[in-house]
């Protein structure tokens, strides 16, 4: 187990190094273009060269990469071109905002979708199974912008219960979080529900569940003690990987509701050509992706004794 964790950590570091190198090569091989982005389109070539010289850009590529990577590791990603503040000053609060969104979403979605999935998979082909499956396919197939429009029409303009934007200008407010969370929930819960359902249905058809039933155990114990743990091994991986999706995939929702999150920051930076922000955001996104993969691998191993003790 320890060996496995160490090995995984090692490969995680390696992936980060490779990705950051590729990232750096894409954005900063063409030095003049970097200077052009920083100084603006009307700067002259001499001005750009002076800027390059001042900022140490005339050093060899790998030296620059090492310095850049070192700074990034200390949290120094340079200055945002659009906002004129250090990137780290905007990055972390934005990340925290998206984190809050994700936390609220997960707090509702995981118990709900696991419960629904187990309920559906418990009796394959029953009414409850079909109802849940149809409903979850339906919600998953509506794109986020469509459901966001629909929900806004109903709850903001129709009933007037909720605010239409979630920019949190007057400080943190739960009310403003409701619609973004709801949209994400509608989109994503069906996926986990169906994963859980499939896994649960497979477990319920397995021979050890038959053994448990024919041992005369009460039905509740068969489900809670024998089925659940095995049924949750597969969805666990999927759930952890949702973290990754949330970070980069919530752009639509954040833009729609003007929520100041990570996705919105990345989109704005991309539109403006704010290369240092893009670099920082990409690095963070890759880190989250690799880390969630790591957690899901280790967690899977831990949950499954067949792997744990072999």
């Amino acid at each position: 187990m320890l060996i496995l964790i160490l090995r995984r950590l090692g490969s995680m570091v390696l992936i980060m190094l490779v990705v950051s190198l590729i990232l750096f090569a894409i954005f900063e091989t063409d030095k003049l273009a970097v200077a052009g982005k920083v100084l603006g389109p009307y700067s002259s070539t001499e001005q750009r060269e002076i800027w390059l010289e001042e900022n140490g850009y005339n050093q060899p590529f790998f030296t620059r990469y090492v310095i850049w990577a070192g700074n990034a590791m200390r949290g120094d990603f340079g200055q945002s071109l659009q906002l004129k503040v250090p990137v780290s000053q905007v990055l972390w609060p934005r990340l925290a905002n998206t984190g809050i969104l994700a936390l609220c979403l997960f707090a509702i979605m995981i118990p709900l979708s696991l419960f629904m999935g187990v309920l559906a998979g418990m009796k394959e082909g029953s009414f409850q199974d079909r109802a849940i499956t149809v409903f979850s396919v339906l919600t998953t197939s509506i794109p986020e912008f469509a459901s966001a429009t629909l929900l806004t029409a109903v709850f903001v303009f129709g009933l007037g219960w909720l605010p239409g934007t979630s920019s949190m200008t007057a400080g943190f407010s739960f009310k403003e979080l409701v619609l973004p969370v709801l949209v994400l929930l509608l989109y994503d819960f069906g996926y986990i529900t169906r994963m859980t359902r499939a896994s649960m249905a497979e477990v319920m058809n397995s021979q050890y569940i038959r053994t448990a039933i024919l041992k005369g155990l009460p039905y509740q114990r068969v489900i809670m003690r024998h089925a659940l743990r095995n049924a949750l091994i597969a969805p666990f991986t999927v759930i952890v990987l949702q973290l990754n999706w949330l970070l980069s995939g919530v752009i639509v929702v954040e833009v729609f509701f003007a929520y100041k999150g990570f996705g919105k920051l990345l989109l704005d930076a991309a539109l403006f050509g704010d290369i240092f922000v893009i670099e920082a955001c990409t690095l963070v996104a890759v880190f989250v992706a690799v880390a969630s993969q790591f957690i899901s691998d280790i967690g899977y191993t831990y949950l499954n004794p067949r792997i744990r003790f072999s």
Partner: peptide, 22 residues
């Protein structure tokens, strides 16, 4: 349920599949 496992029990063809792996 009260009869199964206490008065009548069963042994299966594939012991590995019949035992809960976790």
């Amino acid at each position: 349920r009260q009869l199964r496992g206490s008065e009548v029990s069963m042994i299966y063809q594939e012991p590995f599949a019949a035992l809960n792996p976790s």
